[in-house]
Nucleic acid binder design. Structure first.
Length: 341
DNA sequence: CACGCGTGGTT
DNA sequence: TAACCAAGCGT
């Protein structure tokens, strides 16, 4: 009996009993609707980011900035520093732009429709649907990587990703109704995260196993089918740690666009060129070894060179302050140079 | 529409 | 350990 109604009631009953407790989530059936600001903030932080990694950032952000108006008033640099370590820094720039748009153009109130949310910076199809469903109880089709995987298995979809996304989204849409849309979206994502996992799915305890064509096929883990991925190139470069001898270190502000855009960084050579690199100023440079770092689309070996030196066109920061505000790749280099994150 | 864009945990 | 993976978005 794989009709929509029984599939829905099976999964919602499981969610009522087994929903994860998360700092941004109201318990199912509590009648409490989470503040749209918190739903939005959590959704942006969770884009391509695990719950354990995002959680401490969510807690510190909501403590420092309890409302969207408070967030909108923050300095750019302060916000980027607070985001350091969370990755995908365009999210932080868009987060601030979005908060300011809500504060200035919407009287501090989040739009309560999917279309209105979609118009905000950093809010795409997924986040608009998620906020509409979870914060405003709109029957939106919320499709993230979890939901794609659950649909691919439930309906044994053979079309490889990413081409198959259109079909998976259509299938997810057939299950959305006016009844408890926020809980439905979160139930699907919880199922994907804890039971219908990418590897070793727990089909024996799955509340919708009886509806699952992937399980019936005998190879549920085969879904979703994925296309070939491009190989990841390797690059090399040099990072210079310049100290002033009084506890400060030189950093630069990176351009707003591109890799680590808008963040502070250590002065570096270009990445990908040969090993011959000229040190930026005459000083007592010594080699502190190298660090390895893996970005989404390339890996990097960064040689770390250290000196006490003076330089122009840099910002001198207390070392502890720099350490906390630097993206991880540069924090690693600074640790290699003898600092502590 | 394919690509650029971080990081850390798991296998 | 190299590969894979995570509540995507903008261009």
């Amino acid at each position: 009996m794989t009709d929509v109604a029984s599939l829905r009631s099976d999964l919602l009953a499981w969610y009522d009993a087994r929903a994860r407790t998360l700092p941004w989530r109201a318990p199912p059936g509590s009648g409490v609707r989470t503040d749209p600001y918190r739903v939005w903030l959590s959704e942006v932080m969770l884009q391509q980011t695990t719950v354990p990694h995002a959680t401490p950032y969510f807690l510190s952000f909501t403590k420092r900035w309890p409302t969207v108006a408070a967030l909108a008033a923050v300095d750019d640099g302060e916000l980027m520093g607070a985001w350091a370590g969370l990755g995908y820094y365009a999210r932080a720039r868009n987060l601030l732009a979005c908060a300011r748009a809500v504060a200035n153009d919407h009287d501090g109130v989040f739009p309560d429709t999917e279309a209105g949310l979609l118009a905000l910076p950093g809010v795409g199809a997924y986040t608009a649907a998620a906020v509409a469903a979870i914060a405003f109880d709109r029957p939106a089709n919320v499709v993230d990587g979890n939901v794609e995987r659950v649909m691919a298995r439930l309906f044994a979809v053979d079309t490889p990703l990413p081409g198959g996304k259109v079909e998976l989204k259509r299938l997810a849409g057939t299950l959305v109704t006016d009844d408890r849309p926020g809980d439905w979206a979160q139930a699907l994502m919880d199922l994907g995260a804890t039971v219908c996992r990418p590897r070793s799915p727990l089909c024996l305890v799955c509340p919708v196993a009886r509806h699952c064509q992937g399980l019936a096929s005998g190879e549920p883990e085969r879904f979703p089918v994925k296309g070939a991925k491009a190989p990841r190139p390797h690059r090399t470069g040099v990072a210079w740690v310049m100290r002033d001898g009084q506890g400060r270190v030189a950093v630069v502000r990176r351009p707003d666009k591109g890799l680590l855009g808008g963040m502070i960084g250590l002065p570096t050579s270009d990445w990908g060129e040969g090993p011959e690199v000229t040190d930026p100023v005459v000083a007592d440079w010594r080699d502190a070894g190298a660090i390895e770092h893996v970005f989404t689309h390339f890996s990097l070996t960064l040689q770390v060179r250290v000196a006490t030196a003076a330089a122009k066109d840099v910002i001198w920061l207390e070392e502890a302050e720099a350490m906390s505000a630097l993206p991880t790749v540069f924090a690693k280099a600074l640790v290699r140079a003898g600092g502590e994150r």
